[in-house]
Design a protein around this nucleic acid. Sequence first.
RNA 1: GCCCGCGUGGUGGAAUGGUAGACACAGGAGACUUAAAAUCUCCAGGCCUUAGUGCCGUGCCGGUUCGAGUCCGGCCGCGGGUACCA
Length: 863
Amino acid sequence: MHPAFSCKGPLKMSRYEASQIEAKWQEAWEAASTFEAKRTADKPKYYVLEMFPYPSGKLHMGHVRNYTMGDVIARYKLSTGHNVLHPMGFDAFGMPAENAAMAIGGHPKEWTYNNIDTMVEQMKPLGLSLDWSRMFATCDPEYYGQQQALFLDFLEKGLVYRKNAVVNWDPVDMTVLANEQVEGGRGWRSGALVERRELTQWFFKISDHSEELLSALDNLENWPAKVRLMQENWIGKSRGLQFGFERVDGEEPITVYTTRPDTLMGASFVGISPDHPIAKQLESESEEVAAFVAECRKGGTTEEAIETGEKLGMDTGIRVRHPLNPEWELPVWIANFILMDYGTGAIFACPAHDQRDFEFATKYELPIIPVFEDPAGTGDLSEAYVPTKAEKVKYVKGFAGDTEQTGEDGVNAAVDQAEANGWGEGVTKYRLRDWGLSRQRYWGCPIPVVHCDDCGVVPEKKENLPIELPDDVSFDKPGNPLDRHPTWRNCSCPKCGKPALRETDTMDTFVDSSWYFARFTAPRADTPTDMAEAEYWMNVDQYIGGIEHAILHLLYSRFFARAMQICGHLPEKSVEPFDALFTQGMVTHAIYENAERKDENGRTVYHYPAEVEERDGGTFVKETGEKIKVIPSAKMSKSKNNVVDPLAIISAYGADTARWFVLSDSPPERDVEWTASGAEAAHKHLSRVYRIAAEAATMDDGTGKDDDTLVRETHKAIQDVTLGVESFGFNASIAKLYGFTNTLAKSKAGGAAKKQAAKVLAQLMSPMTPHLSEAIWELLGGEGLIANAPWPVADEAMLVEDTVTLPIQINGKRRAEIEVSKDLDKSEVEKIALAHEAVQKALDGNAPKKVIVVPGRIVNVVA
RNA sequence: GCCCGCGUGGUGGAAUGGUAGACACAGGAGACUUAAAAUCUCCAGGCCUUAGUGCCGUGCCGGUUCGAGUCCGGCCGCGGGUACCA
C-alpha cells in the first residue's frame, strides 16, 4: 500500500528518494490526465500563463523560477475548485537561430526544433501542471499561417500600412542590422561604421489606439503600478502648441510643436531634424549640407544612441520670423538630436530652460534668453533652469497670463493667446509611434503579400495560406536568403495572375508573441481562434513574466487584442487580455569574461559558471588557467554564457528541491543573484519533512498533551500560507512552512493530531513540492491525489489569540512591554502602561504630554 | 540622455507608518557516535576594559510625524527598458 514505507519499521526509516517519488507521481498525473484542460460549466475557469520561452536550447534558472511560480498558482487554483488552463509553448522565431546557422552551420529550423525537444525534456522532470496537449511553437506553419490570416484581416480593416522608416545599415556587409548587432556604432561582424538608411516597411497603426491604450490602463487594477506608469510614459500624451514660423524668404512656413509655448519669448533658434523635408531638399542642393546630414546619419537608430551622442548642428542660412514679433529673426539649424518621428520634426529651442537646447546653444554660441526667474537668483549660466510644470515661476519675459503662475497655467495661457490671435493651435500628441513589423530576415513569419508590376501590393489569398518558408536556403552570405532564393520569390499575382514577386520581409517576432495567449484557448483551430473557446477561457486570469517586457510585449499584446476584436477573433471583453499581471524579478549571475584573449573575430569570450574556478583570490578558467574578469550580477543571458543549468540540481536533489529553492528566500518580484549554496539545505529540509511525516504515520491514533496547540498552529499555518500564495508572497509562505514544520517536529501532540497536521503540511506544500506532497499524502492514507484534494480552510475561531504583547515606547524608543488581553479597552491599556516602572521612571513624577495607544500594536508615551 | 525600479547583519531576506533583523544559508559551541556522515540542542547586527536592558544602526543628506526601512525632497550606487535581443 505504501511502497516507500513497506517492510520497514520506525527505527529503520525509509529515506526520501526524490528520483523514485518524482517519476512515480508524474506518471500518476499523466495517467489521470490531471492537468488537461476541458471546457466545463460546473467549475469556474482559471487561465494562468507564464510568458513562453525562446528555445535557446537550455533551460535556465530564470525559466525554472518563472514556471514554478505559475505552477504554484495553477495547482493552488486547482485545489480551490477551478477548471485550470495552464499551457506552454515556444516563441520560436528570431535571430539566434540564424546566428547559429551562420556560426556553426545547419538550418535554423533544425536548430530550433532540436532545442524545443531538449527544453521540453528539461521541463518535464520539473513536474509542472501543464496541459502539454496544447503545446505549439510559433514557427509551426499551423501557427504562423493563422498569423498570416490575421495580418490579412488587419490589412482589410486598415490596421496595417506601408511607409518609409530608418534601419541600421552595414555598408560593408550590405545588410540591415538589429540594434543588438550594433556595438559602439559599428556592425558586429564587419566592424564598419553603421549608417541610418530608409526602407519601405510595414507598420501596425498602433498610434490610432494611443488614447485608448492609455485610458484603459486605469482599469488594470491587478497590474503592477510601475508597469502602468511605464506604459503611460511610453505612450507619452502631451498637450502643446502647434504653429508656423514664417520664413523670411517667403517659402512655406516651418511648423513646430512645443509642450512649452510659455517659453516662446526665450526662443533662440529653430531646429529641424536631418530627416526633415527642408533638410532633405537642402541636401540635394548643397554639398556642405549633404556632408553634414551624412555625418548625422552615422551611428545606430536607437533612442539611446541619438540622445547620448554628441550634439551636432549646422546653420541652414534660412531665417524665420518670431510669431510675436515680426522684426525678430531666428536662424534655422539642422540638429541631429531632433527626431522626425515625434511632433513635426521641427522645434523652437529655449536654451535658458531646456538642458539639451542649452548645451547646443553653448556649443554653437547661440543666445540664451531667460523667460522666468531662477529663484536661486545667481545668474549662473552653467546650466539650464528647468522647473517642473507644476511649479510656480515668475515670468520675466512672458507673453500670456500672469507674471507669476505655474508652468502649466503659463502653457494654457500661451495656447489660448495663440488661438485667440490665430497664429497657432493647441494640439494633443502622443510619443507612441506606429509599430514597424518588417524584418529583413529569413527566420520569421513571411508577410503574406505579393508585389505585382500591374496591381502593386496585393494581399495573398487566404486559401493559399500558410505561405511557408522554403527549407532550401543558405546562410553563407550576409543578408536575407529569401531575397536570393531562386524560386520562392517568384509567384503569380493573386489578383491578375501575371508573374509577380513575393514579399521577402518577415514579421517582427513580437507579432508572434502578441496573440499566442489567445491561440492557446484553441491551438488546433483552423481559424486564428475559436470564438466559443475564446469566450470560455479568455481572459488570462494571471499572467506572469519578466519586468523586461513591461512595455513592448505587453503594449503590443494589448493592441493586438483590440485589433483581433475588431476583426472578430476575440470577444469584446478581451480587449484587455490580461486581468492580472505579475512581473517576477530576474535570476542574475556574475558574468565571467576572459581577460586574456578574444575570439578570432576580436570579440569578447565569455565562460559558463561551471567552466571557472576561484582560487588564490582570483577567478580562472579551469582548463586553461586563463584569468577571468568577473562582472557582477547581470541578467542571465545566453550570449553572455552566465547561465546555471538547473538540471544539475534536479539530478542531484530532485525537482521538488529545485522548486522549493527558487521560491524560498527571495521575494518573487525581486531579482535574485544565483548562488549554488542553499540547494543542499533545501533538500535537507524536504528530507526532514518526509521523515517527520513518516514518523507521524507510524504513530497510534491517540491523544497527547499538545493536541490543542498543534491544532491551533495548524490553522494559523493554513491562514498564513494561503495568504502568501494568494499575494505572490511565496517566500513568506515558505518561511511559515519552516516554522510550522519546526512546531510539528517538536510537538508532544498525539498521533491523530500529528497525522492531521502532517497531512495539512503536505497540502500546504503541494503547490511548491507536488511530488513530495503526493508521497506524504499516500503515506498518511489521504484519499486520491493530493493535486485534486480540496485546499484546507482555516477555522477563524482557531486564529483568535487571547492575549497580546504590546511594546511601550517612550518618546519613540522601545523601553518595555506589557501583556494584555486582546480586547482590553484603550484607556485600560493606557493605565497599565503608565503604571509600568520604566514609564514612571521616565516621567519622573510629571504628567505625560501625550499617550498614543494603537490597539493590538503599540503604546507610545511622550514624556 | 530619458522613463521605471531597487539599496536592511558575513549572505538571501522579514517587517498594513507601530518591538528592525522573522524564516533560512554560511559560521561557532555542544549532544549522540570508536570515528565520520546524518540528526538533535544552543549561540549569533555593531560598539564598550561602565555589559547596562546602555549607546549606535535599514546607501548618503535633509524633512513630515507621538513614531519612518516604510511617506516627501535632494544626492550616490546598482538593475530593467529605450521601439530590429527575446
